[in-house]
Nucleic acid binder design. Structure first.
Lengths: 146, 146
DNA sequence: AGTCAGTGTTGGTGGCGCCAACACTAGCCC
DNA sequence: GGGCTAGTGTTGGCGCCACCAACACTGACT
């Protein structure tokens, strides 16, 4: 009956979920000590890379629900890391812009994330890290119609 | 200023989190249509592989908090997939055992998980799947003192 | 003009992970 | 033995992430 000695440990989705848990907790801790959450980083990064956008557009880019974008943007506005103003060309739409403090915070979060990355990938050689990144990237590209 | 064209997409922890999200939703859907949740699968699998155990021991094996083990075991008992009885050799301790319906359910969940796996790893060759699994396994082994 | 898609917002749900507190038991040391 | 400490089951709560439903409103299209 025990033809599968390692039923759990050999499954990629199990490995993924466990590793994501570890990684996520590291990231969470790093972000938390900088006063941020994952949603904040996603939004700041998207704003920095793709420029100002409406909340709905942000939600699409970051894959965050519109309603959650509202909350996160509220917090980012409160922190002064983001600016929300009505779009002059479109009545109901808001235009969200990253501020200078927001860029600074994004920089901090980026370096924090890099440290987490190093800690996470510690047991792997540079070549292995590259192949892992490539493989994960291929998987993600396949599963993200983007 | 745009020296990093792909700040988000190139980070393993970002890839991990995104992929874990996709994978997790696939797994969740597959488990849900079998009437189970991730906690159930973990517990059933651990019981099947390592035999009966106390709830605290189960929590340690599955990395689930004691309090959450209570809830999940309650549900599994309700579903008849698990048996809970006081440990005769230890007053307060409970002895949790997988039942025959529990093993059947575990089998269903296993095949469902296999299908999700195939879907998840679709774009990868067999060799690539192996290297990915190996790399993830090495990472997990490093970050899990177990 | 009227319909329809898109937008911002409020509110709620659920899974997962974690912690604090309590009552109780077993094993240990004095 | 008596008392202390570690371990166990249970209740209750919190926070993050992700999702959904509903509403009011605007823009665009027919």
């Amino acid at each position: 009956m025990d033809e599968t000695p390692e039923r759990l440990a050999a499954r990629p989705s199990w490995l993924l979920s466990q590793l994501a848990g570890r990684s996520g907790r590291l990231v969470f801790a790093a972000f938390a000590s900088a006063g941020a959450r994952a949603y904040h980083y996603r939004l700041l990064a998207a704003l920095h890379e793709y420029g100002p956008a409406s909340q709905a557009e942000l939600g699409r880019r970051c894959r965050i629900d519109r309603s959650d974008v509202v909350t996160a943007v509220n917090q980012l506005v409160e922190l002064g890391q983001v600016d929300r103003a009505p779009d002059p060309h479109h009545g109901r739409r808001n235009r969200v812009t990253i501020t200078e403090p927001g860029r600074a915070q994004l920089g901090r979060l980026d370096t924090a994330l890099d440290q987490v990355q190093d800690e996470l990938l510690a047991p792997l050689s540079a070549a292995d890290r590259d192949t892992l990144t490539t493989l994960l990237g291929r998987l993600l590209a396949h599963h993200q119609p983007d």
